[in-house]
Design a binder for these strands. Structure first.
Lengths: 248, 248
DNA sequence: CAACATTGTGTATTAAGTACACGAAGCTGG
DNA sequence: CCAGCTTCGTGTACTTAATACACAATGTTG
């Protein structure tokens, strides 16, 4: 691997979402500060997946690289949700402690570009080599300690996700290639924090001609097996309408 | 004025839109490269309103500052539409020429944060002191020479605007406090490049209880005077519904 | 006061949103 | 092997919104 020079004052943070057919989860990295002898853990918390960009890569590449490192996957759905340049990013007493130990030499005027990433949970096995990476339920984040302004970034990303999901068919990025309508409904319910009537939800899906039923059915479930469906981006692109409905 | 230190590799570019009751316009700054004697203009083109950020301000402040400088207005509608970190930003032969003359000492790895700004044209008189700032019809941009990647940024901003305008009542930022329904319709037609049936448009507006008719009518027009309306953000916030319609 | 320009209005049809309940399929355990 | 369990998959009636379409009313100007 080539050794790249980093741009010291620009970083990329990825808010990576996954769905386990029950709830929405987010990928967080554990951060531990040990004493000099590398024995006792002084403090620990969690951060988003992020890093500085290299001199010779653009923002999207940096985000892709970070995600590839964590998940082993290329071609992950990735979209910017904002750039953040608060002045007080590392000014809390807590962060100052970290800062003294670890971040020596970092510029104190950092711009962070936030990326929203959506992952098909069934395709990924986390790379736990030297970093502790794990999924956490989105509902748990409010009670967790996150580094820097990462809790703020997380909620920004969640809001962006909830906005987008109503307008573009990006939720399918969180599902495997084949899925059942109940799984799709649970996903939307988890994303938006609501619940839908099953018949109305399916009526709605029936209008989306890009959600296509397959011949396959579920196997080995202790109940009536469900039919599998498929999301077709090509059909979506061809059939999308653009309703002008500035919501009332 | 305090002399601020700039952050050399981070800049903010504002795509400022205005509406003259006929068409959508964008604010551009003329850039001229003169010879040593400051007589002959060697080359000229246009740029977005942009500048580097200062060490002691955040991104939003930088954008506000830039707009205040150009228009004299505070409280302009401002929203990020993306961060851009292409490597080839100043690599065209044309830009290299500029670069040699003017941009000496700038880092070559620049991140630009794009801001979308919407201005009520009737409130602004451009400050033409030392810079040549003017409105240009959006339809004209395709034929113009813009600096750097500014043409790309402009179209990114236009797309973001067209997307947002369908979902949030931000178009009103482009109108004066009082406006007629024909003006509103023309605005939406200009924004989206379509045309609407008058009766259907007004039926739609009638559902938006936050567009409120006033007692006042137009005066001094050579035809039946139109009624004025008002946009109420408070009513909007109270009555907004959130329809889940992942468009088909 | 005639000509002009623009405002402001209504109806019929189609499409989509919402509220609501039960039989069918396949597995499990006794 | 069948009774019970769990989840699947479906239809109808009502309300609301979208679309297509044409003409009389108002105020100014010459």
């Amino acid at each position: 691997m080539i050794s790249h020079k980093i741009v010291p004052n620009i970083s990329v943070d990825c808010v990576v979402f996954g769905f386990d057919f029950e709830k929405l989860n987010v990928l967080l990295v554990e951060r531990e500060l040990k004493d000099e002898k590398n024995e006792k853990i002084l403090i620990s918390d969690h951060t988003l997946a992020g890093y500085h960009i290299f001199e010779d890569e653009d923002l999207d590449s940096a985000a892709s690289r970070i995600l590839k490192g964590l998940t082993g996957l290329d071609n992950i759905f990735l979209e910017q949700f904002g750039a953040y340049g608060q002045l007080d990013r590392v000014s809390s007493p807590r962060e100052k402690l970290w800062f003294e130990h670890i971040n020596k030499g970092f510029a104190d005027r950092i711009i962070t570009v936030g990326y929203l990433a959506l992952i098909d949970n069934t395709k990924v096995t986390l790379r736990l080599k030297d970093r502790n990476v794990a999924w956490f339920p989105v509902s748990m984040v409010s009670e967790m300690e996150l580094a820097f302004d990462h809790k703020f970034l997380f909620y920004e990303a969640l809001q962006a996700l909830q906005r987008k999901v109503k307008v573009e068919p990006i939720a399918f990025e969180l599902l495997p290639d084949y899925f059942t309508l109940s799984q799709l409904q649970k996903l939307y319910e988890a994303l938006l924090g609501t619940s839908f009537d099953k018949r109305n939800f399916r009526k709605k899906v029936a209008q989306m001609h890009y959600v296509i039923p397959l011949k396959k059915k579920q196997q080995g479930v202790a109940h009536k097996p469900a039919q599998y469906y498929l999301f077709s981006r090509e059909v979506y692109e061809k059939t999308r309408k653009s309703r002008i409905s500035f919501i009332i």
